[in-house]
């Protein structure tokens, strides 16, 4: 794969594109998902900002890390179809696989409008029902002139930003407190993104075995249950 990206100056040097991609208003369907927070709220595991911080920390170091590394690998040019399989292998819950592909398909639409390129077209053609969202995000990041750390940051941030926004809606939690939770997590987020990027850089040569496979069994279990709720505010 070539290292020059179609819309950026030199790979990894773009910064404003990262803001566009990481913006919660980027129209890629994320607003309808709580990242497992709705199930945790219902079960009484998230009742306040302290609980939210604990939940987010757990998610960041498990699915957050795993997803961020997949995105980083895609951003450095590892084969997205191989990564898509690796993502399946790291996602035991069928409900979460469905969600990841749905969000991947939705991100693909926005990405092709924002940074049209052959790599996105090829992935869309190979996975018309959607590839895993972090994989699409990594390919998008590359198209936008961003590097593996940027892609990893985006995904790691999303892994905690989604639940925080959802909990504001679900509990009426003070939005300043929720934002403070995210700010306190920022140093850990940077660490996770760095680890993810390191692993991602090794993937093209070493294969997907170089990528972390941290998981959160409780998130998998509650996601399965949540998908069957007849009444819910969030899709996942």
């Amino acid at each position: 794969m070539d290292t020059t990206s179609p819309h950026g100056a030199s790979p990894g040097a773009a910064r404003a594109a990262l803001l566009v991609l990481a913006d919660g208003r980027f129209p890629a369907g994320g607003h309808a998902h709580s990242g497992g927070a709705e199930a945790a709220v219902k079960a009484g595991r998230i009742r306040d900002a302290t609980d939210l911080a604990t939940f987010c920390r757990g998610r960041l170091h498990t699915t957050g890390l795993t997803s961020a590394a997949l995105a980083a690998a895609a951003a450095v040019g590892a084969d997205p179809l191989v990564l898509d399989e690796a993502a399946d292998a790291r996602t035991p819950s069928p409900a979460l696989r469905t969600t990841a592909r749905k969000l991947g398909r939705q991100l693909m639409r926005a990405a092709r409008a924002a940074w049209p390129c052959d790599a996105l077209d090829a992935l869309a053609a190979a996975r018309p029902r959607g590839a895993h969202q972090p994989v699409v995000l990594g390919v998008t990041a590359h198209a936008a002139g961003l590097g593996p750390e940027d892609a990893a940051h985006c995904v790691a941030y999303e892994s905690v930003g989604g639940p925080a926004t959802a909990v504001v809606r679900l509990l009426g939690l003070d939005p300043f407190e929720a934002t403070a939770v995210l700010a306190r997590l920022a140093p850990e987020l940077d660490q996770v993104a760095r680890r993810a990027a390191e692993a991602g850089r090794r993937a093209p040569a070493e294969g997907p075995g170089a990528l972390p496979a941290a998981s959160a069994p409780l998130l998998d279990i509650t996601a399965q249950a949540h998908a069957a709720w007849p009444v819910r505010l969030f899709a996942s």
Partner: peptide, 20 residues
């Protein structure tokens, strides 16, 4: 389509799930 408690977002600001 599920809207994450915000139908106006799903029909105006982020229409991706509806287009799907």
């Amino acid at each position: 389509v599920e809207t994450g408690a915000c139908p106006h977002t799903a029909i105006r600001d982020d229409i991706s799930a509806n287009l799907e």
